[in-house]
Design a protein around this nucleic acid. Structure first.
Lengths: 245, 245
DNA sequence: AGGACAAAAAATGAATGCAAAATGACTTCC
DNA sequence: GGAAGTCATTTTGCATTCATTTTTTGTCCT
């Protein structure tokens, strides 16, 4: 195996010489965003070595801004930098995943608690709306729609917490986990799906009553159950074969 | 005002040419550790501009590894990088502090919950020991000892959670807050001090019973009260003058 | 033929150099 | 006298270059 990156034939960046009109940020910032997405979306196989040279060509930049971006990604926990031996996509062990899920659970739990202090009736109504949409997707077995709605609900709760620091941290961890494409698979278990719907109803109920401590508990348990389903799915891969390769 | 850094006469790094036998990590890693400590310990005034050149001379290195370290510190939230205008120590608004305290509260709350699942009797005994030590410091009005014991207790709970990811994240936020030297001041309020002792007893009690959900609540409230005391202290600076300048 | 050693090739880590942007000072004009 | 414009200096951003370390390849010996 020579090139560790799968089909990186197409440069991520346009020529980028200077023609680009939009200049969203400094070069290293742009590179950071691109690289982060690239890694989060799973374009690089787990644990694969990523030669700097190759990334440079791919992005059309020199090594200096690239290395700065790599350092940041390493600090974010997406990749790991072995001294003198380059960057690798961080391989998440099952234990790592468990830990990440638990931290996410803690963050959502906190978000719920804080949200109860600050959320407006309108926001609750909006979340109820998403909940009904989600229920519709559930009934139609529309997994993709279900998960999008689900994600929006959780993000709305985080947003209602009125805490930018929390929001940023949450997004960071969500990115780390997103590499593991658990969602599309573990949700196929019908039983878990029904359970999740019930939990979501309990979440809404606690939210309406602004019962912070209670909501905190429910959210933690909800995420814990998600974690269990995800981990179970990993150890015993598929219960019915997914369509995507 | 020319040099924004106070008494940076002494280079942080020893000669560092090559004589040093110990080589803890790569240069940028070493620089990162040093710079982080330097910032966390508050050696640079809030919002002060930090010319790269000056830091380079101070550390005896070139700009490349320094800039890498700065990017990481920015990602960690300790400094902020304004495009084309250099690095500034991140100025924490009161709102920022509130947010940070709340996230810390959430993390400790999570730590408590997880600790209840995994903590051993020996660890609880060790924490009880620290608790009694802390009580001793409390009785002797030994603020410094009290805070050290207090910090050790909270760190022990985090350690008992058996979650390295949580531990790292916790340490990160602790570092961000540490810049604000609240501890030495707000603790002078006797009433709050007594309250905190009572809360700590409740924490121990819940921990002994492995009552995760309950401990989670107590810890959150405990940190919330800390936050209130810290913020109050900031708005209405000292109730009795501190000895240190 | 298989393994160990050595040299070449490549990749990483750090330093230097160069262009662009910002800061500051000075001049000029109203 | 004050404000705006212009030029010099400083500083940042990125590319290039140099020095080490690692990895690969080729050869030799058992």
């Amino acid at each position: 195996m020579k090139s560790t990156i799968p089909d990186a034939g197409v440069p991520i960046a346009p020529p980028a010489q200077n023609g680009g009109d939009r200049q969203e940020a400094s070069l290293h910032g742009e590179v950071l965003l691109r690289l982060r997405d690239y890694v989060v979306e799973g374009n690089i196989p787990d644990g694969a070595r990523v030669p700097e040279r190759q990334l440079c060509e791919m992005l059309g930049i020199s090594r200096t801004p690239l290395r700065e971006a790599l350092k940041v990604l390493a600090a974010e926990g997406l990749i790991e930098l072995l001294p003198n031996r380059g960057a690798r996509v961080r391989q998440l062990s099952q234990r790592d995943l468990e830990e990440l899920f638990d931290v996410m659970a803690g963050l959502e739990s906190l978000a719920g608690r804080l949200a109860c202090e600050a959320i407006t009736d309108e926001e609750i109504i909006a979340i109820e709306q998403m909940h009904y949409e989600m229920y519709g997707h559930y009934l139609h077995r529309d997994m993709h729609g279900y998960f999008q709605a689900n994600q929006r609900i959780h993000e709305s709760i985080v947003a209602a917490a009125r805490n930018e620091t929390l929001k940023t941290t949450y997004a960071n961890f969500a990115g780390r986990i997103r590499r593991v494409r658990y969602s599309a698979n573990f949700a196929r278990k019908r039983q878990r799906w029904a359970e999740a719907m019930r939990e979501h109803e309990a979440i809404l109920d606690a939210l309406r009553r602004r019962a912070g401590s209670e909501l905190s508990d429910i959210l933690f348990q909800h995420l814990r159950n998600k974690r269990a389903a995800a981990i179970e799915h990993l150890t015993e891969p598929q219960e019915d074969a997914p369509a995507s390769p």
